[in-house]
């Protein structure tokens, strides 16, 4: 970031563009459609009853969280291994991780609500569930490290290394929890949890994934830009502070 990059015209200082506005409108329509289909049009499940409707938010939410973490890992690698060391990649990684943590939190909550209704318990030590919980904490830690302070490139390097470590961790944790879990089949809550989805329900689930992904892209673009603005504010602050510091020398 140099001083010149601060002097961009005013239009670039808002996070919305005609593309994101269009995307936002499409996403809103999609959400309305999803709500209509999820709550009204689709039937209740034979085994689960009405609680199956939670799935239309839970499954896309979980999908989105994993997508977001993969994007974080890829952009972290792009930051570390491209010679330009562009902070854009770092900001995409950070924005994506924030959204991922948000949606992973949502899917944990909806998942345990669904579990309570279907299995009679909020939590079961199912491999996927446990991995998700570990991952959630791992990325909360990642966000904590992003906020440690220092210069932008210090932040970027530290968190990029951490993001790549976190991605290595996903299969390790999942594999170990799955192994661990395989010994405990008799202990897990057994019930008929198989969802026999008809075409309409599958379509609604699919629609949810599409709508959530659009929402993710929309949020990512805005958050990335607002982070850029935040970094620009830091840089403007630096210019102001530099000027103040230089003036200090002149007056003494």
């Amino acid at each position: 970031m140099t001083a010149a990059s601060v002097d961009t015209n005013r239009r670039e200082r808002v996070t919305g563009t005609s593309f994101t506005r269009g995307l936002g409108a499409v996403t809103l329509v999609g959400i309305a459609w999803l709500v209509l289909f999820g709550l009204v049009v689709t039937p209740a499940d034979v085994n689960q009853g009405e609680s199956v409707r939670i799935m239309y938010a839970h499954v896309p939410g979980a999908w989105l969280a994993y997508l977001a973490f993969v994007v974080t890992a890829i952009s972290s690698a792009m930051y570390l291994f491209r010679r330009t060391r562009s902070l854009v990649w770092d900001r995409i990684a950070g924005a994506s991780a924030e959204i991922g943590v948000l949606f992973m939190g949502i899917s944990l909550v909806t998942g345990s609500l669904w579990g309570r209704l279907t299995w009679g318990t909020f939590w079961t030590w199912d491999a996927r569930l446990t991995t998700t919980a570990f991952l959630f904490i791992t990325y909360v830690g990642y966000l904590a490290v992003r906020n440690l302070g220092g210069t932008h490139h210090q932040r970027a390097r530290r968190s990029a290394v951490l993001a790549l470590l976190a991605v290595l961790e996903i299969p390790l944790v999942h594999f170990s929890v799955e192994l661990w879990n395989s010994l405990h089949q008799e202990a897990s809550v057994v019930g008929n949890t198989d969802v026999t989805m008809d075409g309409l329900m599958l379509f609604t689930l699919f629609l949810g994934v599409i709508v959530f992904t659009l929402m993710y892209v929309w949020m990512l673009m805005h958050r990335q830009r607002s982070l850029t603005l935040q970094d620009m504010v830091d840089d403007i602050g630096l210019d102001v502070a530099l000027a103040a510091r230089r003036a200090e020398a002149g007056s003494s």
């Binding site: 302070g149 830091d234 602050g237 230089r246």
Partner: peptide, 13 residues
């Protein structure tokens, strides 16, 4: 040369 301590320009040129 400019160097920062946190966001403070401890060295201002």
């Amino acid at each position: 040369v400019v160097a920062l301590i946190g966001s403070f320009p401890a060295l201002a040129g």
